[in-house]
Computed example of a mutant assay.
Amino acid sequence: METPKPKTVDAYIANSGGEARSIMEELRQIIKSTVPEAEEGISWNVPIYKYHGILAGFDVARHHVSFGVDVLHDEDREILKEKGYKTGKKTIQIKFDQEVPGNIIKKLLKAQAKINEVKTNTK
């Protein structure tokens, strides 16, 4: 029997492996403190935060947590790579034994929030 899909971020985190929980809790806290107006919810079966559109989200994988945000640029990728993080087009992989790169994530969240505000105000 398939496990039910989580309907809240609390349930998503609770249903995840212990190694991933602290990373997801920290990401959640960073998102909420950086953009307090962001709405938290589950979309595409993962935690997503919305602020004038999609702000960011995260997802657990076998050996890491992926943090996703649209504004991940090459200079951010280089900084993250130097610190040992793997990045995708719009994601940062945080392995279970790595610290959450909080300062970079805060910078990315602020940049994405600004972009989303501008998009909303120019419609």
Rank of each mutant, 00 (worst) to 15 (best):
residue 3 T to Q: 12
residue 6 P to T: 01
residue 6 P to A: 00
residue 9 V to E: 01
residue 10 D to A: 12
residue 11 A to V: 05
residue 18 G to Q: 15
residue 20 A to Q: 08
residue 21 R to A: 13
residue 22 S to L: 13
residue 25 E to L: 05
residue 25 E to D: 07
residue 26 E to I: 02
residue 27 L to I: 01
residue 27 L to H: 00
residue 32 K to E: 05
residue 34 T to S: 03
residue 38 A to E: 05
residue 38 A to M: 07
residue 40 E to L: 03
residue 40 E to R: 04
residue 41 G to T: 07
residue 42 I to P: 00
residue 42 I to Y: 04
residue 50 K to Q: 10
residue 51 Y to G: 10
residue 51 Y to P: 06
residue 54 I to M: 15
residue 57 G to M: 06
residue 59 D to P: 01
residue 61 A to M: 13
residue 61 A to F: 12
residue 63 H to C: 05
residue 68 G to R: 13
residue 70 D to I: 09
residue 70 D to A: 11
residue 70 D to V: 09
residue 72 L to H: 05
residue 73 H to D: 13
residue 75 E to I: 10
residue 75 E to L: 13
residue 77 R to N: 02
residue 78 E to M: 04
residue 79 I to W: 03
residue 80 L to N: 02
residue 80 L to Q: 02
residue 86 K to G: 13
residue 89 K to Y: 09
residue 92 I to H: 08
residue 92 I to R: 13
residue 94 I to T: 05
residue 95 K to Q: 13
residue 97 D to A: 01
residue 100 V to C: 14
residue 102 G to I: 05
residue 106 K to F: 08
residue 106 K to Y: 08
residue 106 K to N: 06
residue 107 K to E: 09
residue 108 L to C: 08
residue 109 L to G: 01
residue 110 K to Y: 15
residue 111 A to Q: 12
residue 113 A to S: 12
residue 117 E to Q: 12
residue 121 N to Y: 03
